[in-house]
Every structure is written in structure tokens, then in C-alpha cells.
């Protein structure tokens, strides 16, 4: 299964793990709602949500190949990017805005997150955790940037310019007045980490994290 560009990092060769990611996102979404998927890739998530949750879905995707695949699946996806195009969506135009495995590739993650919470009543953000013990061990013992099956790029050719850890992201939520309603951590073996586990545990053992956010009142 070929995975394009920036989204490849987590899922490179791990189709089953991807699906857990998607299923967790789907679990956070109420049926018959209106969603925007920022970074739609080939449309697999949007299609899953359309078919399993009966959502009215829209998407933004950077690569033309990705957009073409989405359009061929009957999805409404535009070519664009999170940094440039979110500004054109009015406030509260969606129930959920999803940013799946993309925030680390944006130029201005904070602004993007603010837009997500402006456009959507809720935002769902998933990202690879740079605080995972394997990343730390690469830096500590090998002294190199991590390159492995879930972070497949070398430092000089990666589209991922803003990696963060779970703790970094929780701090960003605080700064942007985002309320964390739910969170899931996924370990390398696909096991979920319970929400009640402390953040330090997440930060060490979650390969990827998924947050359901809403605006603080």
C-alpha cells in the first residue's frame, strides 16, 4: 500500500495500526454530523466516516494524487493546505474538524489549531509522539534523529517540520484555550493507553496520540 508524502510517517507499512487510528477517530464522532478532514490523504478516513457514521464530509488534501483518489471515491475534497486554506472557512461551519497525522507538517501549528477550533465546534487531532521512548533512545544512545518504520524520513528530507511530544501538545492546548474532552494513546503494538494514565506515561509509551478538543467556554 503506497502512502504519500507527509502522512506516511506513522503508518509506513502498518496498515492495521492505521485502522486503529481511524477507528478511534470514528468513535469520537457522532453520526449524521458535518465534518472537515484536513489532510485527507487518499480519502480512506472520510470514506469510513461517510459509510459508518453517515457524516457529511469535506476534505482538504495537499497532493493531487490524493485529491484525485478522493474525488474518485465520491468525496468532496479540495486541493489545498492547512496553513493556507483554513482561513476561508467561516466560524462554526462544521461539527468536527479532523487533523489526522498532519499538524507536525504545518508551518504554524498553533494558528492551525486555532482555526480548527474556530471552524469546528470540536477538533480531533492525531499526531506521532516525539516523546516516545524509541525516539528518546535514538537520540540518547545513537545521537541521531530517529528514522524507523513509523518515522521513515531522514532529517533533511522530512516534510515534518514541527514534531512535538504529547506533553508539548497538552501545553499547546492550554495556550490556545482548548479543552481536552477525550484522548487516546496508541502503543507500538496497537494497544491503547487508558486516558487515566498520567501524561508522563503517555509521553513515553504512546507512538501516536489522538485528542478530541473543544473550545473552553
Amino acid at each position: 500500500m503506497s502512502k504519500p508524502d507527509k502522512k506516511a510517517l506513522i503508518v509506513g507499512g502498518r496498515a492495521d495500526n492505521t485502522r486503529i487510528d481511524f477507528e478511534l477517530v470514528a468513535d469520537m464522532i457522532n453520526p449524521n454530523t458535518k465534518i472537515l478532514d484536513v489532510g485527507s490523504d487518499d480519502g480512506a478516513l472520510l470514506e469510513l466516516l461517510r459509510d459508518s457514521r453517515n457524516v457529511e464530509g469535506r476534505g482538504i488534501e495537499l497532493s493531487q494524487k490524493g485529491v484525485n483518489k478522493c474525488v474518485a471515491r465520491g468525496l468532496s475534497v479540495i486541493q489545498g493546505d492547512a496553513d493556507e486554506d483554513l482561513i476561508y472557512y467561516p466560524d462554526d461551519s462544521f461539527d468536527y474538524v479532523i487533523l489526522s497525522q498532519t499538524i507536525q507538517a504545518t508551518r504554524n501549528p498553533k494558528l492551525v489549531l486555532e482555526h480548527l477550533l474556530r471552524i469546528g465546534r470540536k477538533a480531533i487531532v492525531s499526531f506521532p509522539n516525539f516523546g516516545h521512548w524509541r525516539v528518546r533512545s535514538d537520540l540518547l544512545f545513537r545521537g541521531t534523529m530517529p528514522v524507523n518504520d513509523y518515522l521513515p524520513y531522514s532529517w533533511y528530507d522530512t516534510p515534518n517540520i514541527h514534531f512535538c511530544t504529547v506533553r508539548d501538545f497538552v501545553n499547546l492546548c492550554r495556550e490556545t484555550n482548548a479543552e481536552i474532552e477525550k484522548a487516546h494513546g496508541i502503543q507500538g503494538d496497537g494497544e491503547r493507553i487508558s486516558f487515566s494514565a498520567p501524561w508522563w506515561f503517555w509521553n513515553l509509551f504512546a507512538e501516536q496520540a489522538i485528542f478530541l478538543l473543544s473550545r473552553k467556554r
Binding site: Q64, S76, G80
Partner: peptide, 21 residues
């Protein structure tokens, strides 16, 4: 084309947009 797409987005319309190489 992007101008049209942005307007359609702002109107809440269902829109696909491809730029062909």
C-alpha cells in the same frame, strides 16, 4: 479557480477541487 473554491467553501457547498499537472 481557488477564488471560486474558497467562495464555495464559505457558502458551505460540497466542492472538490483538483489542479491538474
Amino acid at each position: 479557480s481557488r477564488t471560486i473554491v474558497h467562495a464555495l467553501n464559505a457558502a458551505g457547498a460540497s466542492v472538490s477541487f483538483v489542479e491538474i499537472d
